[in-house]
Simulated assay, not measured.
Amino acid sequence: MPQFADDEFVLADGTDARLLPKVLLHDHLDGGLRPSTIIELAEEVGLDLPETTPDRLAQWFAESADSGSLPVYLQTFEVTVGVMQTAQALRRVAREAVVDLAADGVVYAEIRWAPEQHLRRGLSLDDAVTAVTEGFAQGTEEAAASGREIRVQQLLCAMRQADRAEEIAELAIRHRALVAGGVCGFDLAGPEAGFPPSDHSDAFDIAAEAWLPVTCHAGEDGELDSIESALLDARALRLGHGVNIVDDLEIGGEDASGTFVTLGPVAQWVRDRGVALEICPSSNLQTGDAEYLGDHPFDLLYQLGFAVTVSTDNRLMSATLPSLELVRLADEFAYDLDDLEVFQLNAIDAAFLPVEDREQLADLIADGFDEVRR
């Protein structure tokens, strides 16, 4: 990962955001590799890289991803996916992801990835998932040995532009487990425009019949009907990004009481049902959802009562960490610790965990924030 200065993690009140316990719902395994690891793995498999030093490679990823276009942004994954084609590489990347997140104060994470993209060197789908499960377990143990407790689960993604969604849904069901690093849900990822969730309705039927929770990339690059399809066809309990829900808001005039906002039927449903929005602010700026952070709809959605959560999407491509996303939002919208705690509690409410586990996690978050406040 890029090197960050310590002062980048400091909130306006002087709190180091790394000390805050955090919950992460939207983080891609192939978007969070350490640049040094990419270089080492690329040498092992003979893959040419655009840069050959960690700092310059990290800069290349950030600059290439900062395109204003989701399809162009996704092209950077050819490099990371290219070095993640063996069980050994998958275990290493998974282990390091857990260690890096734990070092940033994350106590619970659901990390997503697409097994179908990691079969070029002979791995089966099941072999790939087993390797990542092992890597997550190793990372959890390594973090615990350094005094940092973290729990990690997998979300398996099907690529919406491909035709293996049913197979991936069945794969997720086979590997579903509440063990360290186990699979907890199903997702649809990839270029959104032109590939609605309804194209894969059979896969979502398979997940529903097995009571497997579903989140779905929607409202990042597609129209409002992509969100509708995620809710209706995918039966999504959360929306990956979901920021384009603002297209179903009508913002009127102002008076002494504030600005008038009318919610359309989709936005009304999402807000009233508490469907969590897995918002990734830095990534959204890179793919053109807003020109600058102050123009991002995050605060509008928060003020309107939507269940907003804060995630990283791709830590490498967006040159970010969970703590940095919180600092950037707090600086832009004058959020305090109470606001940042709400975002964590929203994420816990939406986590694919049994209610008893979510209650314990909520207590952990509350205790951690209280400790920082003292």
Rank of each mutant, 00 (worst) to 15 (best):
L25K: 13
L361W: 04
H200I: 13
D126H: 15
K22H: 09
N284K: 09
M84P: 12
D338P: 14
T259S: 11
A102R: 04
L237I: 09
W113D: 03
A5D: 02
A114H: 04
M84L: 14
A236D: 00
E356C: 10
S226A: 11
G294P: 01
V179F: 02
G135E: 06
D289R: 12
N346E: 05
D233L: 14
T262Y: 07
L156W: 03
L329W: 01
Q344E: 13
A65M: 06
R151W: 06
F352I: 14
Y302H: 15
L125S: 14
D367V: 14
L326D: 06
D339A: 15
G14Y: 02
R148W: 05
A218N: 06
V23L: 12
A210I: 12
L178P: 05
G82Q: 05
D289G: 10
M159P: 02
P2H: 01
R174L: 08
F204P: 15
D299N: 15
A189V: 10
Q3D: 01
V179H: 01
P197S: 10
E228S: 15
R164N: 13
R92E: 01
A114I: 08
G219I: 00
L19P: 10
P213M: 04
H217K: 10
D367H: 04
P71D: 07
H217L: 10
V270A: 02
R164M: 12
L239M: 09
L119A: 11
V270R: 07
G185A: 11
F352T: 00
R315E: 00
D16F: 03
R160I: 00
L231W: 08
H175E: 08
A128L: 13
V72W: 01
Q88S: 12
V355S: 12
V23N: 09
D363I: 14
D363Q: 11
D48Q: 11
T53H: 05
A158D: 09
R273S: 12
D233M: 14
D221T: 06
D233G: 13
V179Y: 01
H296F: 03
C216E: 08
